[in-house]
Design a protein around this nucleic acid. Sequence first.
DNA 1: GTATAATTAGAACGAACGTTCGATTTAATT
DNA 2: AATTAAATCGAACGTTCGTTCTAATTATAC
Lengths: 207, 207
Amino acid sequence: MRQNEIPKVVSRNGNVRRNRQYEKRMHSILKAASYVIARDGFEGASVRDVAAKARINLSGIYYYFTNKDELLYALQHHTFTTLHETLRHRLQSCDTKEARLRAVLDNHFEFFVENMDDLKVCVHEMESLSGKYYREVLAIRRRYYRLVRKIVAENLDGRRHDADLVSLFLYGSLNWVYTWYDAEKNRDVSKLSDQLLKIYLNGIKAS
Amino acid sequence: MRQNEIPKVVSRNGNVRRNRQYEKRMHSILKAASYVIARDGFEGASVRDVAAKARINLSGIYYYFTNKDELLYALQHHTFTTLHETLRHRLQSCDTKEARLRAVLDNHFEFFVENMDDLKVCVHEMESLSGKYYREVLAIRRRYYRLVRKIVAENLDGRRHDADLVSLFLYGSLNWVYTWYDAEKNRDVSKLSDQLLKIYLNGIKAS
DNA sequence: GTATAATTAGAACGAACGTTCGATTTAATT
DNA sequence: AATTAAATCGAACGTTCGTTCTAATTATAC
């Protein structure tokens, strides 16, 4: 039996009698999808490739997901939610506004390093979904962005800056990372937040 | 007769007897391709859609371009070259290093506003080509990046900053614009460079 | 006007794709 | 051990895609 209702993120199987490996299989499919979509793009990625990478039969994919779009939806939904949650958790132990801004950067970079494929799929395939799928992911994305914006705003000299613009510029620097990050060259991840934080707090001016 | 040699950017037709409309047709195909690829992504864009948008028969496309990849190659090659050239030209009338940094931002934003689809196709489809096509575009992209980096570097307090990181962060802010730019909300383009320049020269610190 | 080559048009090819279906196998319950 | 449903599998469907081929048409040169 297979569910075909409105998709949930974690598990779509509401049955009682369920194979113990169900969750693991689901996870391995998502991991494979993340890898293949990050490599080939969503349109370029074939469900067959995802299945092969996950070591499951092609039609097996459709036992866990109703279609290709839902694969991407599940990936983006889960990744953005996790990113947002880890940031919220991290912020609880920050006293100053500077510490909170630093937490935003640390969180994003560290999350990126540990989930490169997933975050790339979130950033690069932002427009690949449509309809309900798109709108739901957009809502989560906005939630995360608003949190970033709030922390940027409290660090701002409001007379000289536009909070939206500053946030979008910072957001751009963060989201662009996947195009140049090199695990060898950038072994020290904290250096990335150090550098970006310095720019936004003090500028780059030569003396 | 049709050419099938190494593609040139401007015109691939070396024949003498040539329809007066040849160049116009070629340009209209590129314009259509830019529109469709920006909308659907390179993999998602069909040559049929490009042909329809350019008001030409499907097989007519293959009279001007040997394959779909070459369409993207021509677009990216031409756009990056132009972007680089306009920046070089602009820099000639800059006296101070601050003026040169400002020129980088002005050039990028103004070029973006006037060639949104083209620049989006350059940024978002960076990985869509492979082999020779990819390497050639990469070379031009690097040339542009190095120019930006040089100007960032001369504005840097080198003891406190890493020129590569700063350049990549700035580059990210610039390239991310296509995801949020709204012609209505951002009528004044110079405000974008103003804001970004302030950040990089003075930071955002609240007093 | 006629010859010649550039350009367009229509139809078709094979390949790859997302998805479905029925049968088979596996695991859990009694 | 028998039963029942979950999970997997192999094969196929219909569609869309990039590309090609040949014939028709148009523009240019003589």
